[in-house]
Design a protein around this nucleic acid. Sequence first.
DNA 1: ATGCACCCTGTAGTAACTATAGGGTCAAGC
DNA 2: GCTTGACCCTATAGTTACTACAGGGTGCAT
Lengths: 130, 130
Amino acid sequence: MKIGALAKATDTKVETVRYYEKIGLLPPPARTTSNYRDYGSDHLARLSFIRRARNLGFSLKALRELLELSDNKDQSCDAVDDIASRHLAEIDQKIDDLTTLRSELGRVVGACQHGTVGECKIIETLAPRI
Amino acid sequence: MKIGALAKATDTKVETVRYYEKIGLLPPPARTTSNYRDYGSDHLARLSFIRRARNLGFSLKALRELLELSDNKDQSCDAVDDIASRHLAEIDQKIDDLTTLRSELGRVVGACQHGTVGECKIIETLAPRI
DNA sequence: ATGCACCCTGTAGTAACTATAGGGTCAAGC
DNA sequence: GCTTGACCCTATAGTTACTACAGGGTGCAT
């Protein structure tokens, strides 16, 4: 299959597929006589894996670790579990941060009386407290 | 005050202060005879505003709009409210996404039986759906 | 006078793509 | 059989919001 089909099948942009190849995340495929990339099911599987992991919020760095682990099937699951757990903690932190931020910003937005900028509570909140 | 003092007072890195000047967010200050940047209270106020807005997650683009709006005190506050409200909606979306993501990843981590990678539920979960 | 903390400019690097320029290929329709 | 349009190629630069040098100058204390 050509790059456009692979991209579509994995909900990825064509440029991103080429980018993954460039940074060594996706192995270079065979080429047709007209120099088009020609992907097989192994590429589809690997890119699916990459995309799903990305959607789960894994960084490319963590993903590289995971792919390496998955390439050596006889290694312990603990390492994989460790990566995922670390990531889970990160997500919890992000949710916490955003929730705090949301309540703060929500309070600010709620305070807006729709007057002039001079009396705007939003600007006031942002302005330095001296 | 010199750049180091300003940076400390606003919890910013020195390089970031110079960066804000470079992209036109912070006006260039006066210089001492030895060419050191010499900041006054107006700069301190503006940088405080910038930092507070950044901490609330506003992008530099949104920040630029907010700064422009805050300079014209007698116009309507609605534009300010609009920027903040849009930002709030973005945050809500992010929290939603992260919450979904968290439950998925939590399930994945919980499924790990601490065997080998070959049987690891994490890898299975991320493997392509056929 | 020498060490150290601070300041300067300019450039390059970071993550993870995205976009653009400037071209080549292929199948369908007239 | 020729054009149109969708697709493909490489290479490079842009994005966001900084951060990190390299290679130098300044100012104060010991």
